[in-house]
Amino acid sequence: MAGLNKVVGSYEQALEGLSNDMTIMVGGFGLCGIPEGLISQMVTSGVTGLTAISNNAGVDDFGLGLLLKSRQIDTMIASYVGENATFEQQMLSGQLKVILTPQGTLAEKIRAGGAGIPAFFTATGYGTPIAEGKETREIDGRHYVLEPSLTADFALVRAWKADTMGNLVFRKTAANFNPMMATAGKITVVEAEHIVEPGELDPDHIHTPGIYVNRVIQGKFEKRIEQRTVKAAPVIL
């Protein structure tokens, strides 16, 4: 790693500085677009007391479910956690603190955090349990809830293509929370499917400019599918 070349050669280097009780953001929607190798490295590193910000909590044996099983996460900030029995058991027994956050509010909290906006008003959740204890305001006859933004010590992001300077392109619905999280980490680490040289990505087609990115690592992905749904193959007569 030198100058603007952000490529690191090992997962240890990718997560150098990660320590107990840190806040981490992890990209992905379900198992789609998750930084698989970086999650594995967190398990290997043995750090504990983490606060994890991610839309979901993975499944029992994949994604963030791995970090739950090893009890490395203390607090989880997510919008939907329905696919993970380990998660349910730890939540019910009180081992895991869970802050459920509406999906759009979660996305905007992260976007705002990366953009230097400390909080924002949204109509989402007004009059519901998630607004309890929060400041509200009426603006032009509508009620809004004040939601603080989110940042993290580490943001772990999965990209389709990265150049060595950290410019990123995402693929299809694997983008999801990754672009915002890339902006909201004190240290943003990108696990890419492909790493290319500067100039190979069309500047018009870059989703995340390299200024947000600190480290890039070549990833290895299983790309597990959570709900494999296909239509019947056409019958050839």
Binding site: G30, T173, A233
Partner: peptide, 17 residues
């Protein structure tokens, strides 16, 4: 999708391909 066009990077909000 079909078995041929299925893509792990392309799902809906129910996490179906």
């Amino acid at each position: 999708p079909t078995e041929q066009t299925i893509d792990a990077d392309l799902i809906n909000a129910g996490k179906q391909t």
